[in-house]
Design a binder for these strands. Sequence first.
DNA 1: ATATGTGAATTGATTCACAGCG
DNA 2: CGCTGTGAATCAATTCACATAT
Lengths: 213, 213
Amino acid sequence: MSTIPTATISRLVTYLRILTSLENQGIKNTSSEQLAEEAQVSAFQVRKDLAYFGRFGTRGAGYTVPTLRRELRRILGLNRPWNVAIIGMGRLGQAISDYPHFEQYDFSLKACFDNNAKVIGQTMSGHQVYGMDALPQVVKEKGIDIGFLTVPQAAAQAAADALVAAGIKGILNFAPVVINVPREVHVEPVDFLAGLKRVSFYIINPGLKEELA
Amino acid sequence: MSTIPTATISRLVTYLRILTSLENQGIKNTSSEQLAEEAQVSAFQVRKDLAYFGRFGTRGAGYTVPTLRRELRRILGLNRPWNVAIIGMGRLGQAISDYPHFEQYDFSLKACFDNNAKVIGQTMSGHQVYGMDALPQVVKEKGIDIGFLTVPQAAAQAAADALVAAGIKGILNFAPVVINVPREVHVEPVDFLAGLKRVSFYIINPGLKEELA
DNA sequence: ATATGTGAATTGATTCACAGCG
DNA sequence: CGCTGTGAATCAATTCACATAT
């Protein structure tokens, strides 16, 4: 099995966003050169990343924007609906539940959970809040695939365990901690405090920035 | 110059968090084995990561928690204050300005900016909102080092240009777009939509998850 | 005894150069 | 002729094995 770099998957997401932008501008054709420039990678890299999944271009001519966009959506699994739930309705959970563009991004917010008796049963941003004890049943009934873990750090592992037990397939982990899940569940960290600390490091170590052409 | 992997910097941030947690529990000593388990990497990896920066342990005994923690804080540049500003006071910018734990994390929110006349001059979460035209002066006067870019995608590049012109050193980019800045400015992306799409990919391609011991 | 620190070996990712196709 | 697609070469990162220090 050809092993695909994780960095390739991140770049495919970037290429897809660029293609969507080009399509919105009515641009019909593009090239590895143009995608590379907008994604700030090399044209070699673009072609190699795409080559892991097939042949999508026309030699001598480049790529057709709608075609390549459709292919990338298929590769990334965005040609189907994904049902998501928010676990932890604190500030961050509420901010995400307010996020107005979910449907446009192929994801559908189906449920919100919290373990605070004061908010259970209430409606927040148009969504009823369930208690954590309802998780297994609601995940099953609503076919929830992905959980947004927005609980405090101290509660993150227990909440992740509950998500796994309920049969969730992927977790977007906003808590600043490494959570432990079975191999078959995929976790993506979204940790702005960690990003902030990396910025700090690179500001005091300006020599360590890789050079570009 | 020994080139340090970017992944190493991310892991150092994780080790630091673990050390802080151990210190809060009153634990005085640790080992590459323990750090590795909590960070979900190999003990080799922990030792190699630390070796890029010096020798911090005692052979046969392991590491002293407060000492290694202090060293990692120094390496990451967290032994000094960092002044940050938020650019874009929409939902996300407001949620971040409400975040209650900034000081505890070595960062100090000094200013908020927006280009909407309706919010300029108002106070949000205890912070006065400035117009974008005030950016150069406020960045200089308040010694702002890092900007949180929380404007809509379409406004991100222009806002980044303004930050760079004002002399900012690092950007935490929450907008779902690759921004173009001079090499001396460090950008860290914080893009939960991209993370969500990666989750989608790994759910439909479960075979591509790397194996662990 | 035990766990760190590190050169060497291995594995993985990116870059390159050009073959292949329109 | 131009731009994609891809094996080969280079470069980078991780893993290993063990020398080293307490």
